[in-house]
Every structure is written in C-alpha cells, then in structure tokens.
C-alpha cells in the first residue's frame, strides 16, 4: 500500500510499515505506533517504512499486540487492560528478556515498566540457588568465598524461607 505522508491531512488514517529483522513487514496506524518513542521520532523525521534491525518477527508480533491493546486504553476499560497485562507477561523468561530488550530499544516506557516489574516479581523471594538455575548462571565462587559474601550482607539473608521453585 502506498499511503503517502501527506495523506494524514486528508482525514485518512496514516499508515506506517514496520520491518522486523527477519524481513517481515507489518502495517499499522500511526496513532498506534507512536506509543513507541523511537518510532515517533522517526515518523517526525518523515519515515514511513521503519526497519527494526534489533527486533525479530516473534518479538515484534508481541509488541504490536501490546501497542494495539494499549492504544484502545480509555477510562472505562482499565480492568481489561490490567488483565491483558497480566496475561501478556506470562511467558518464559527467555521471551521476556527478548521483549524487554526490544522495549528498551524502542523506548516503550509502559511496556518497560511492566516487564521489569514482572521479572522482579519472579525473582522476588527466590533462593540464590533457584536464581542460578532459572537464569543459567554458573556459580564462580569457591565455597569459602560464597560464605564470605553471604556474611558481608547477613541482614539480607535473614528471615523467612526462600522459594526454591524454578518457575
């Protein structure tokens, strides 16, 4: 579709094309896409085809889903958006890291906050061992060193049971 940049003044909805790193193109209304600061600036500079080299098709699809939903945000559907957000962050950590990097690159602040909160929630109260498992981190301390580091901040390890589960 060849909508030109001047068409917005004629009342037609201005369309933009986003291109993922895999080469897939997505056509969206400008009003939806400008939630993303990076694209907004490119639109202001007159671009209508926007290549996103750092975002693959899978991630871009998710992000478009998010932007579409949030473009509908009004006073009355707060609850609906909330439920959408809750569903949106259900996924593997792998996907979430992919998303958070993309959201950071695209400067979608709302999505950034949502994802950071979600990742934090999932680390919260986890045992150190569980965190290592989940994020594929190898422990490079010797047992003595680990004991020493634990001692340095004893206060942080006090109180309560920590969650050992890996979800």
């Amino acid at each position: 579709m060849a909508s030109s940049s001047s068409s917005s003044k004629t009342g037609l909805k201005k369309m933009l094309t986003l291109k993922s790193s895999d080469g897939d193109e997505f056509e969206l209304e400008e009003s939806i896409v400008i939630q993303c600061q990076t694209i907004k600036h490119m639109v202001e500079d007159g671009f209508s085809l926007i290549p996103l080299q750092n975002v693959d098709t899978k991630t871009l699809t998710k992000i478009i889903e998010y932007m579409k939903k949030h473009a509908e945000k009004t006073e009355s559907n707060k609850e609906e958006i909330k439920n959408f957000n809750k569903e949106f962050v259900k996924g593997s950590f792998d996907d979430q890291f992919e998303l958070v990097s993309a959201a950071n690159y695209l400067h979608i602040n709302g999505l950034m906050d949502l994802l950071c909160q979600s990742i934090a929630d999932r680390i919260n109260n986890k045992s150190v061992r569980a965190v290592r498992e989940i994020f594929n981190i190898s422990n490079d301390y010797t047992p003595d060193e680990e004991e020493k580091v634990r001692d340095e901040h004893k206060w942080a390890h006090e109180g309560g049971e920590f969650d050992e589960s890996l979800d």
């Binding site: 958070v100 950071n104 950034m112 680390i123 150190v128 301390y141 206060w155 942080a156």
Partner: peptide, 27 residues
Amino acid sequence: RIPLDIFIQILKILGPKESAKMSVVCK
C-alpha cells in the same frame, strides 16, 4: 542479554534486601 540499565531497574524494583541477597549468586 539485557542492558545494564535494565538490570539495575529490575534491582530497584526488587528492593534493597533482595538485591543484597543476589550478590551471592555469582561474582
């Protein structure tokens, strides 16, 4: 895979106690 700024942002949300605890994870 994520920029340091985001890592720090997540730690800020986690709060001081959880953050300090995480220093035991690895160097």
